[in-house]
Every structure is written in C-alpha cells, then in structure tokens.
Nucleic acid binder design. Structure first.
Lengths: 214, 214
DNA sequence: TAGATTGTTAATCGATTAACAATC
DNA sequence: TAGATTGTTAATCGATTAACAATC
C-alpha cells in the first residue's frame, strides 16, 4: 500500500458520503457515476467532488466519470472499512445498548466485542450477544482483545474519566457521544458525535429563522 | 430581542461547547471564566474563544473574564435552549427508542412527544411514556402538536422518504442519524449526526497513523 | 469528430490565529 | 499603579469554487 498523504478532515467527512452513495449505486448495478451526479445527490459542487477524489488514489475517465466498483473499493480502503476493528462501548444505558445492538456496525467491519458499566445494577445484564461487564475489567479486556476503538456513551459528567480509562488501557481511537468535550493526549484520535449538541444547532437555526422573518 | 447577525456554523458548533462547560461552572458555583481557561478545557486557542464570543451579545471584563451566569444565559438564548421544542422520532428501532428515552433532551427543553414506525410489529409498543404510532398518522400528529424538529432514526434506505414525510407535514428542522445524505428544500434545516460515518472517520485516522508509522 | 467530463491551477472565500491597544 | 485580560484588527492559513486545458 502506498503511503497516503494527509487528507484534510473536511474531505474525510465527505468521503464517507461518497462511499455510502457509491455503495448504493454498486448494489443497484450502476457502473459509472459523474462528479456532477455525486454533487447533486450529496449537496455539493462538482468541483468539490473532483477535488476531493483527487486526494484518493483513483482516476476517473473523461466523459464517463468514475467506475463505481473501483471507487467504492478505494474509498473503503482509505476509510478503513475493508478491515475489522474491535470496539468497546462504555455505558450500558439506552444509547450504549442501542449501539451495541446496531447492525450497521458489524456489517461494515466494526465489531463491538464488549460493553461495560460501573453500575452494579447493570453489570451482568444481557445486551444482544454480550453481557455487561464491570468497568474494573475494562483494562484487561482491552489488552486481551486488542480493542481499537472506545465508545463513550455515558453522561457528560463521567465522560472525561471514561476517556482516561480507555487511554490508560491503550485504546487509540475514541468516539465521544457525550455532550462534554474530552481532553486526551496528542496521539489519541477523538471523533465527536454529540447528538444533543446537534439538536442545539438545529434549535439555533430554527430560532434564527423565526427571528429573521419578523 | 435584538435581531441577531448570522453566525457561521463553525462558531455555532463551538457555542454548544461553551454552553456545556459554562453550565458546569455555574452549577459548581464558579462565577468567572477566562478565554484562556475555556480554550484549554475545550481544545481551542484563546483568540478563537474571544472571537466566537464577540458574535454573542455579551461582554467580558478585562482581568476577570466572563461572568458565568450571564454567559450561560446569553448562550442558552442564542442556541434556543431557553425555549421548549417539540420533537418527533421516526424509527422505533434500538437507536430511535434510545433517543426517545434519553433524559438529556427533556432536561434541556427538547420535548420528544411522539415516536413513529411503519412496521406493524412495532406500532403499539410502549417506549417509556410513549406508544409507537403508525407512520400514516405522522402528518396529522405533526400539525396538531406543532412539531418543530423531526429525528430520522431509520436505516439509510428509508431516510430520504422519511425526510420527505417530515417536510410534507411541515417540520422545519431535521436531525439525520442515518448514514445516507438527505436532500431537502432550501428552507429546511438539516443537521447530521451520522454515527457510523463518525466511526469511519476514526478508522481512517487509525489506519493512517499505522501507515505513517511504517 | 464533437461534446462531455476529468484533473488541476488559480482565484475567491471564509475561518483561525497573532498581535496589541484599550481597559479594568 | 502594574499586570492581566478583553475586543478587534490585520495577517495567515485552509477550504471551496471557477475556469479551462487535456482527453476520452
């Protein structure tokens, strides 16, 4: 595999959209897609699409566009969707359990192999094929199973402590679902998916629109 | 209320972080916070913090910083967290139900007043205080209850159709949790919270790091 | 061939950061 | 007062878009 140049985060965010859409085209048997069609379907300009795809080791063909199977393969490789990653969820509340049961993950190589909580009332509960384990077992489990990604699905107040437990255990990638920002060492990757914050962004937009209308 | 100028989306995203952190300070009884402290706790520079807060109708004081109660109040107003919003979830799978049961929403003025599905096997199920309703009742319900925000918690393949159902019913703000991009009219606000896409971004980062290390 | 579409460069646009006068 | 911190301007940095030659 050739060593990739660093791709800007803004581009990576859109690559997930291209992959998702191209996978649909492939399963529909569509062989080719143009930058114009991708742009229209994903709310972008065709210049942005071509520019983004230039970061990827893949060439289109004039007049035809991009071959969907090939583009899918190279995007999947770039996004690591062609390998298996071991994930662990901390927090066996509604959201944590929902993620552990979410089929979309396993289907794409994201193997949720454990769920943990520090509430004795939850430890031992069955969640799909998993049993909720005690937080005190997290570190040993992470090392034994070579966990790559930790999911933080606890209330805001506990998020920082959970992230530190993950980091201490050697996890290099964290998905933060809590509202709170978490602080981690430089070599740890964090991606936020703060749902309540997203709803706040929506309520701002709605409020602003109502305000502008007067 | 003075008419606000448009605030860039990148700033809005950070305002949710300031609000979250300032709320903690307030409940801890801390009266003042500096741009430097906010920056350190939220992974930003102090220049960015001051610049962001300049978009908000609130002044700090030299040598002391920002008064936490006041800053909290004005941020809450800006983000619409000082009013009640009616929300409806479509998709009574694991994720949809988890959101309907999530206490963080109600606590912040986001009132989830309905959950819908088109699967007859799910219609009628109890989810907390709610009963899953049939999709065919969505439109009438949205109008009767003046629903502001629709949450799309269905598989990718159904996301576009659900967004159209929401738009037809008159919902102006959509939270999209599906992996697929949705296309909506200009006057509709969409915020994405695509968890599986976030995990792909993580797996890219981890793969890139492993690759760069060789 | 003629026309459509890519890949790439340069221009534009917006966001972040540095710097510093004002001020508490 | 002296020192710390804001608010704001200007500079830098990065991301998006327009334009067009290359090419299939």
């Amino acid at each position: 595999m050739p060593k990739q140049d660093k791709v800007p985060p803004s581009v990576i965010g859109r690559l997930t959209k291209y992959l998702t859409y191209v996978q649909i085209l492939c399963s529909d048997g569509v062989g080719w897609v143009s930058s114009r069609e991708l742009a229209e379907r994903l709310g972008l300009t065709s210049a942005t699409v071509r520019h983004d795809i230039s970061h990827v080791n893949f060439s289109g063909i004039s007049k035809r566009g991009y071959e969907t199977e090939g583009l899918q393969r190279v995007l999947a490789g770039m996004l690591g969707v062609d390998t298996t990653w071991n994930m662990v969820v901390v927090g066996a509340g509604n959201l944590g359990c929902a993620l552990a049961l979410h089929e979309d993950f396993g289907r794409r190589g994201f193997n949720i192999c454990g769920i943990f909580d520090n509430d004795p009332g939850k430890v031992g509960n069955q969640v799909g094929a998993l049993v909720v384990k005690d937080m005190r077992e997290l570190s040993r489990f992470v090392r034994a199973r070579q966990v790559d990604i930790g999911v933080i699905a606890v209330p805001s107040a506990a998020a920082q402590a959970v992230s530190e437990a993950f980091v201490d255990a050697g996890v290099k990638g964290l998905l933060n679902l809590a509202l709170a920002h978490i602080v981690v060492p430089d070599d740890i990757c964090v991606v936020d998916s703060r749902i309540v914050a997203s709803v706040m962004e929506l309520s701002h937009a709605l409020k602003f629109k109502a305000n502008a209308a007067n």
